[in-house]
Nucleic acid binder design. Sequence first.
DNA 1: AATAAATTTGACTCAAGAGTCAAATTTATG
DNA 2: CATAAATTTGACTCTTGAGTCAAATTTATT
Lengths: 198, 198
Amino acid sequence: MDAALKEPFNREKQFATKRQAVILAAGQAFRRRGYHNASMTEIAKTLGLTKAALYYYVRNKEEVLFECHLMAYDAMDEILASKPKGIVALDRLEALFIDLVEMLTASGVSLLTDVNSLGAENKTVVLTRRGKIERKIIRLVKEGQKDGSIRSGDARLHVFFFMGALNWLNAWYDASGRLKGEDIAVHFALQMRAGIAS
Amino acid sequence: MDAALKEPFNREKQFATKRQAVILAAGQAFRRRGYHNASMTEIAKTLGLTKAALYYYVRNKEEVLFECHLMAYDAMDEILASKPKGIVALDRLEALFIDLVEMLTASGVSLLTDVNSLGAENKTVVLTRRGKIERKIIRLVKEGQKDGSIRSGDARLHVFFFMGALNWLNAWYDASGRLKGEDIAVHFALQMRAGIAS
DNA sequence: AATAAATTTGACTCAAGAGTCAAATTTATG
DNA sequence: CATAAATTTGACTCTTGAGTCAAATTTATT
């Protein structure tokens, strides 16, 4: 391994990793206590750092919130993209939903809803991103209505209904509780499915 | 009408009415922009008042948030209590859900989720209150599982799923949009029902 | 060990918004 | 109209937490 080649790469990589740790920890704090109730000092303490050290990794608090949103949407996009094309739309949607719930309960990634604490710029980006995801899922639902697996009705409302379950999950789910993420995923997927199946 | 009797009563009543208007307006602001993003000055301006005037009606901002929660739970309790006992549990649940959605879309009452901005005292009260409502609905679901109208499975999860839809509704619903609250109510009730029906 | 780069910190500044209060204004009553 | 109570306001204070920065400390490199 050529040190001259490897090390500058590792440096950046280490920095990026630590930065991600900051975003992740902040996300947890924002999810549990709310964006404004969670102070940077508090988040820093979680990581065994001081507030000033945090600012070595991020520009400001809003940027952290922004990155939290992006992190969640990246994870969702990945799941969205990984869905095989074979089967009937309802089955694909169910598999998708299971993956989403498992990701949210297992990965530590937080799906935040506070979009108003972002500046106009970032808010637009986040809402656009969310919109794209919603539209993909709506499209999937419409496919299902075409292939006969999903019953008719406003596809957008179909989706908003069960996306609510997903967002709300983030508010009440506690990893240390008795319910395992996997079980919730199976239950929720079934309920989601039954709610819109033909 | 005896003035001596009527007027002192009206005074209080007028005060209470104005106070409620403050709570309601604040609730809208909190829902749209978030508790911390909505300033008291801003809320006052909405009502054609100045911040200082607001403080004639309320002790502090937290109290307003607290009252917002209570207002929503009062409205929900009222609906919960009004449900006739006759029919099968699933039907009662559906009727209930329709009423809840219509209330949230029509009344201007906001179902807030920010419970962490409350002091320990008030937070406990609110969570207890929410817990009671959830438990009532869970009980109803269990009844349904007994009378055969609702399929088996963790009743708590059944409920958390569709309560998510309700909470999320508050985040995206816009009274000035194309979707009428009544239509959403019917759609959501159907989807809720299908999701847990036997 | 000496040097340089990366990382962390204590001790600050600063802004925003909650909350106060004495005085002004409005409303109701005799 | 005069008086008192209710309501509203402008002009404050105070707190909290975001964000900064020069200096200290740690880590890597020769």
